[in-house]
Simulated scan of single mutants.
Amino acid sequence: MKAESKFAGVLLSIFALIGMVFFVGFGAFFLLLMGKIDYIALLITVGIVLYLLIVFNILHFFQTKKRKIIFGSIAGAAILISTIAPLKDVYTHLIPTVDAEVDISKYEPFSQFGKVTTLKEKATLQLTEDLPKLDGATALYPLYAAIAEATYPEKSYPSYDSEVMVSTTPYAYENLFSGKVDMIFAAAPSASQKKTAEQKGLELTMTPIGREAFVFFVNQKNPVNNLTVDQITDIYMGKVTNWEQLGGKDDTIRAFQRPEDSGSQSALQSLMKGMPMMKPPSEDIVTGMDGIISEVSQYRNYKNAIGFTFRFYSKEMVDNDQIKLLEINGVAPTKENIRADIYPIASEFYIVTAGTDNPNVEPLIEWILSEQGQALVEKVGYVPNKN
C-alpha cells in the first residue's frame, strides 16, 4: 500500500511538472508577443513556487511549522526579487510622455487652420489644369503646400490623396518610381533608391531648391551641448558608447536611428561617408520623425539618448522644448549659419523627377527657382538657394 502511495505521489509530481512547464511556456509566449520580457522571470518564479508547493504537499513536507516558514520565506523572497523588473516597467509607463506628433492636415493648401505660408502678392505662375501631382518628405510638406496654394486653383487638397499629398520620403520615392506622382520634394535618394530607379530604367533629375541643416539633438537634461562631426560618426560606428567620453555624465549612449531609405537616415549615411555603422536594436529604430523626437524628449526617457532630424521640422513644426539641438563643431544650426555656409552639416533639398510628361512640371520648377519662388522658400522658414 505504501509503494502504491509513493507511486501515486511520483505520478502526481510528474503531472504537476508538465502542468508547470505548460503554464510557464504558454505564458512566456504571450509575454514575448506583447513585448513584456521583464515579466518572464516573475512568471517562471511563480511557476516554480507553485510546482514545489504542490510537490511538497504530495510528499507531506509541511508537517512542521518551521518548514512552512522556511519555504514561505524563500518563496516570498524569490517572488519579491523577480517583481523588481515588472514594477520598474509599470513605473516607467506611468510617467507622462511628451507629444511630438504634428497634425499635418493643418498645412494643407487652402486649409482653414491658416498654417500655410502665403505670399503678399499673387504668384506670377497660375496653373488651372494638368496640375503636377506632388509628394514628398513630411518636413518639406509645409513648403510644397505653400507652393501649391500660391500656384494651384483653390480647392481641397487632402494630404493623403490629392494632387498635393505627403507620404514620407520612402513612399514618395516609391510613388515617383511607379508614376503615381510627377515630382517629389525630398532629400537626395539613398543608394538603394538610386539602384531601384536604375533597375526600372528611370533617370532621376534632382533640382536643388533650398538648403537645410541636418541636426542632432539630445534630451534637455543632458549636459552635453556640442559635438564634433568626428564624435558623431564615432557614436554611430559604436566606437564611443558613454557620454562621459564626450564630457557628459557616466551614462551609456542610446543612439536612435530611422528606417532605411527615410530622408534623415539617408542623411546620416551620407555623413558617415561609407564608414560602417553599428546595427541598433530594433527598439532603437524609430519609424517617424515625430517618433524619434518623442523618444529622446519624453520624460521617462532618456537623458542618455541622441537622435537626428532636420532643423525646420524640429524647430518650426514640432518645437519641443524637451530637446535641445546640439552645436556641431561649435556652430549652432541656425538659418544665419546655414546661409553663411558655416554650419558643417547643411545640405540641399530637391525637387526630384523621373521622366514625367506633365507639361506643367518644368514651368512650376522654373517658378520655384525664380525670385518670387525663392522668396516663398525663405518665408516658409528654409534657406533658399545661394545666389
Score class of each variant (00 low, 15 high):
residue 256 F to A: 00
residue 290 D to F: 02
residue 145 A to D: 05
residue 45 T to W: 05
residue 171 Y to C: 05
residue 20 M to K: 02
residue 344 P to I: 05
residue 307 G to Y: 02
residue 186 A to L: 08
residue 370 S to C: 02
residue 46 V to Q: 12
residue 129 E to R: 04
residue 16 A to K: 03
residue 261 D to P: 05
residue 220 Q to W: 07
residue 327 E to S: 15
residue 78 A to T: 09
residue 175 N to K: 14
residue 142 P to K: 06
residue 358 N to D: 07
residue 128 T to V: 09
residue 380 V to P: 12
residue 321 D to K: 15
residue 342 I to Q: 06
residue 300 R to S: 15
residue 251 D to N: 08
residue 269 Q to D: 03
residue 117 T to P: 12
residue 357 D to Y: 01
residue 83 T to W: 04
residue 367 W to T: 09
residue 147 I to Q: 13
residue 112 Q to W: 12
residue 43 L to P: 02
residue 46 V to H: 10
residue 139 A to N: 15
residue 84 I to C: 00
residue 82 S to M: 10
residue 78 A to R: 09
residue 273 K to T: 03
residue 359 P to D: 04
residue 193 Q to I: 07
residue 364 L to Q: 07
residue 93 H to T: 06
residue 267 A to F: 00
residue 228 T to Q: 11
residue 28 A to M: 03
residue 135 D to N: 07
residue 206 M to S: 14
residue 209 I to M: 07
residue 72 G to C: 14
residue 70 I to N: 06
residue 192 S to P: 00
residue 200 K to H: 12
residue 96 P to N: 00
residue 377 V to G: 05
residue 344 P to N: 01
residue 139 A to W: 15
residue 3 A to F: 13
residue 354 A to H: 03
residue 45 T to M: 09
residue 273 K to D: 05
residue 276 P to G: 04
residue 182 D to S: 03
residue 87 L to T: 12
residue 179 G to R: 02
residue 104 I to P: 04
residue 318 V to N: 10
residue 62 F to I: 01
residue 113 F to T: 06
residue 259 P to C: 10
residue 220 Q to C: 11
residue 384 P to L: 00
